[in-house]
Design a binder for these strands. Structure first.
Length: 438
RNA sequence: GUGGAUAUAGCGUAGUUGGUUAACGCGUCAGUUUGUGGCACUGAAGACCGUGGGUUCGAAUCCCACUAUCCACCCCA
C-alpha cells in the first residue's frame, strides 16, 4: 500500500483500464435518450436538505438513515443527493423549464450518495442514469418511459432482464388499500416475523415483499392493490398494459413491487437481473404525479426512472456483453538521440493535427524498450527515427501487426503515408471479418 | 444498523507444533554485444505480512480491540 489514506468505505475508483466500460455504457445511454427526444441536464451534487425530505419522504429509510448531510456554516444544511429526481424537478421549477415545449423530457448521468452498508451492487457513492418526463398524464407516456428504459438495456446487450410493473394507485385508492391490508395482516400479527410486525404499523405493503416463507404464505392471500384501484387508476394501468403488449415489451404484473420513495403514484416498475446477486434491480422508476406540485410548481403529472451504472456494468460483465474496445495509439514515434527527439515532437504535432493519436519517447530509452512500450500501448504504427533517418530525411514506418516496414518523410507529408497505411489496415481488418466496408 | 467470512508486493496466491535477510506466478523495469515489439532466458525494483495493543527470548503465525473488504439481512439503483 503506497499510501495510508484509503478511499472511504463504499466508494470505488475507476482505473484507466476499466474506463472503457463506463464510456461504452454512458455513450449508449446518451444516444438512446437522445433518440427518444430527451435532453441532458446537470444539477448540483448537493441540495438543500429540505428538498429531499419533502420529495423522497421523511418516513423513508433513504431520508431517515441514509443521507449524507453537511453543514459548512451554521445557517445552511445541505445533503449530498441520494437520488436524481428531486434535484432535477427542483431545477425544472427554478429554471421555468415547464414553460418550454411539452412534454418536457430530460436525462442525466450523476452520482448519488447513500449511507448504507456496502455489498455486491451497492455502494455509498453510486452512479445513476435517469430520465424524467413532465407534462403528460397519459398511459402512452408511461409506455414511452418504459420502452426507453428497455431500449437502453437492449442496446447495452443485456439479456434475462425481466420487467415487473405494478400500480400503487393515487393518494385516495392507496389509503383505502393500506387500511384493508392492515386489517388482513392484523389477524396474523403474531405469526409474522418481527420485522414484518413493525412493517404492519409503518408500511404494510412491504410485508408483501418479505422473504420469510411463513410470511409469504400469509401474504399469498392478502388483498391486492389492483383490486382497490379507483376507476381512473385502474383504466390507466390497463391501458398501459395494452400499450406494452402492442409495442412488444414483455412484462409481469407484480403486486409486490413497492417502491421506497414516497413520491410515486400509479405506475411503478423495475427491471430485474438475476445475474448480480441479491441487489438485482438494475432500473427502477414510476410515475410521480404529485411531486411537482408539492415542490411548489403548478400541478403537473410526471414520471421517470433511474438506472444504476455499477449494476449495469456488473451485469454486463457477468453476461459477457461486449464493450467498445479501448482506444489505442495510432502512431508511436521512436526517436534515437537528441536531434531525433526534437523531430519526433514536431512530427507528433503534425499527426495530432491530422486527427491521429501520437506518442513519442519521453524517457530516452533504447529502441528495444521503446518497441516493447509501443507493443504494450497497442500502437498500430511505429515510426523509427535514428541518425540514418535524419540524414535521409526519411523514417522507418513499421506496421506492428504485419511487421511490414516502409519509409515516410520527416515532414508534414508523413500524414498522407500514415493515412494510407492505416486505411489499408482497416480495410484488411474489415475484409477479414467478411463485412462490408460501408 | 444486524449477522457470517476474509485481510501477506500493483494483481493472484504460498507460508500454523511461533524461530535467522517473508516465498511463488502474473505484471513493472533492465539486460541477453552492434538501431526493431510479441516467445524464451537472466537480473532488479517493489510488502512496515490491514491498524493498534498484548502474550513470548522471539509473532505473518497465538490472544484482544479497531478498521476495511466480500456476502447476506434491511433498503434501493
Amino acid at each position: 500500500m503506497a499510501t495510508n489514506i484509503r478511499r472511504p468505505n463504499g466508494t470505488k475508483d475507476v482505473v484507466p483500464e476499466q474506463m472503457y466500460k463506463w464510456e461504452t455504457v454512458e455513450e449508449k445511454m446518451k444516444a438512446a435518450a437522445k433518440r427518444f427526444g430527451f435532453k441532458e441536464i446537470r444539477v448540483p451534487t448537493f441540495e438543500d436538505t429540505g428538498l429531499f425530505v419533502r420529495s423522497v419522504g421523511d418516513t423513508t429509510d433513504v431520508v431517515q438513515k441514509e443521507m449524507y448531510s453537511v453543514t459548512a456554516s451554521s445557517n445552511d444544511n445541505y445533503t449530498l443527493r441520494p437520488e436524481g429526481t428531486a434535484g432535477v424537478v427542483r431545477a425544472i421549477l427554478e429554471n421555468g423549464l415547464l414553460n418550454g415545449a411539452m412534454p418536457l423530457k430530460l436525462f442525466y448521468i450523476l452520482s448519488c450518495f447513500r449511507h448504507e452498508k456496502p455489498q455486491a451492487g451497492r455502494l455509498r457513492e453510486f452512479n445513476q442514469f435517469g430520465c424524467e418526463m413532465a407534462g403528460s398524464p397519459a398511459p402512452e407516456a408511461d409506455a414511452e418511459i418504459i420502452s426507453l428504459a428497455k431500449y437502453v438495456l437492449d442496446s447495452l446487450g443485456l439479456k434475462n432482464i425481466s420487467l415487473h410493473i405494478n400500480s400503487i394507485g393515487c393518494k385516495t385508492c392507496r389509503a383505502k388499500y393500506h387500511e384493508k391490508l392492515k386489517e388482513y395482516f392484523e389477524q396474523y400479527r403474531m405469526d409474522l416475523c418481527s420485522t414484518c410486525q413493525e412493517r404492519l404499523d409503518k408500511n404494510p405493503m412491504r410485508i408483501l415483499d418479505c422473504k420469510s416463507p411463513e410470511d409469504q404464505a400469509i401474504a399469498a392471500n392478502a388483498p391486492l392493490i389492483t383490486d382497490f384501484l379507483c376507476d381512473d387508476c385502474k383504466t390507466h394501468f390497463e391501458q398501459l398494459q395494452q400499450l406494452l403488449k402492442i409495442i412488444g415489451i414483455d412484462f409481469v404484473v407484480d403486486p409486490k413491487i413497492v417502491r421506497g420513495l414516497d413520491y410515486y403514484t400509479r405506475t411503478v416498475f423495475e427491471f430485474i437481473s438475476e445475474d448480480i446477486g441479491s441487489q438485482g434491480t438494475v432500473c427502477g422508476g414510476g410515475r410521480y404525479d404529485g411531486l411537482i406540485q408539492s415542490l411548489g410548481g403548478q400541478p403537473t403529472p410526471a414520471l421517470g426512472f433511474g438506472m444504476g451504472l455499477e449494476r449495469l456494468i456488473l451485469t454486463m460483465e457477468n453476461q459477457g456483453c461486449g464493450f467498445m474496445t479501448p482506444e489505442t495509439c495510432d502512431v508511436y514515434i521512436a526517436p534515437l538521440g537528441e536531434n531525433a527527439v526534437k523531430k519526433a515532437a514536431e512530427l507528433a504535432g503534425f499527426l495530432r493535427n491530422g486527427q491521429y493519436s501520437a506518442e513519442y519517447d519521453l524517457m530516452h530509452r533504447s529502441l528495444k524498450s521503446q518497441m516493447k512500450y509501443a507493443d504494450k500501448i497497442g500502437a498500430s504504427l511505429v515510426m523509427i527515427i535514428g541518425d540514418n533517418e535524419l540524414e535521409k530525411g526519411k523514417a522507418e514506418l513499421r506496421n506492428m501487426k504485419t511487421g511490414e516496414q516502409t519509409e515516410v518523410s520527416l515532414d508534414e507529408s508523413c500524414l498522407s503515408t500514415v493515412d494510407t497505411v492505416l486505411t489499408g489496415e482497416w480495410l484488411s481488418q474489415a475484409m477479414a471479418r467478411g463485412g462490408d466496408i460501408l
